[in-house]
Design a protein around this nucleic acid. Structure first.
Ligand code: SF4
Ligand code: SF4
Lengths: 158, 158
DNA sequence: CATACTCGGACATGTTTTATCCGAGTATAG
DNA sequence: CTATACTCGGATAAAACATGTCCGAGTATG
């Protein structure tokens, strides 16, 4: 999986506690990651419609929806792409013992099993929302943690 | 996911119906894929202990266990590697607002959610066995299909 | 014992991921 | 109103990984 998925999820979580737009460079400084590459991931989030990007002097990124309506699956698919990991090449229709086309009306057992596992993963990711993650972070790292981060994002210090 | 996973699964399924070792080149001819690259995947299966490789004049590959005891997860992990797709970089412990180490005793919500989705996928793959797949192939493509393939593998024609 | 055939790991190539840069555009400040 | 400073956005290199290939080590055969 893309390394950038982790960065994007963290950005979404911290964005739950801010109202003003946050520039990509500041998010990169907070996480100590490559600013330019993080910018690329945020652009992907913007393309997917998960965040709004506002340009200009005090611009940046803001969540476009309530955090409770953004699932982990949305973020993962925005970065990693929506296409499933397993793609059937229909090799059973090639070669000397090719299965005739009349038997290929329904998906074969192998691709069915792969699709089922993919579906299970997607369901698990869909059941987790950004709001839920933020809540658990507050519970685990102490209430007010996110507000502290939000304050730092708004200020100008290091 | 690796393209070779599909090839490996197909090879395992057809190997359920043969007793004598089958060379990699013949399996490649059956599926019309690159013989040398398929050989690489079969080597990975051998390393993982899923198949035995016998050398010499009439050598080849044979399943090392009853098909009912080989799960789809075994094959996928043998090719794609057993390490999970999502790896936490602990970026919350870096940067100006780093979470202190004393709060990092338990896995964070994000990595927990990712691990849960990974676990769901693995469970789905584990619940499918090669024997089950072979059975469904027989049911879907007509009984005796695998025996026909086995006969072709044992002969010398194209 | 010679041989022919097999696997096994070391060696190139292509493609995706990672990382970076500079130009287009906009709200701000004067 | 104008100049400016700051932002995003997509086009551009570098690196890592997956893909594809090759020849030598080893073994059952005859
Ligand atoms: S048997 Fe299934 S997985 Fe294999 S090529 Fe056909 S549809 Fe794809
Ligand atoms: S917050 Fe979770 S996912 Fe992020 S770096 Fe820490 S442990 Fe990893």
């Amino acid at each position: 999986m893309s390394e950038g998925v982790e960065w994007a999820v963290h950005c979404c979580v911290v964005l739950t506690s801010v109202a003003a737009p946050v520039p990509a460079a500041r998010l990169a400084e907070l996480h100590q990651v490559s600013p330019t590459y993080l910018a690329k991931q945020l652009q992907a989030l913007a393309r997917a419609g998960l965040v709004f990007s506002v340009q200009g002097k005090s611009g940046g990124y803001v969540l476009s929806r309530p955090p409770a309506e953004i699932t982990l699956l949305d973020v993962v698919e925005a970065i990693d792409g929506p296409e499933p990991a397993f793609v059937c090449t229909e090799i059973r229709q090639r070669g000397p013992m090719a299965t005739p086309a009349e038997y290929c009306t329904t998906p074969c057992p192998i691709s069915r099993a792969m699709a089922a596992s993919e579906s299970a993963r997607r369901d698990a990711l869909r059941s987790v929302t950004i709001a839920g993650l933020a809540e658990q972070v507050e519970a685990g790292s102490g209430a007010g943690t996110l507000n502290g981060v939000a304050a730092w994002l708004g200020s100008t210090g290091t």
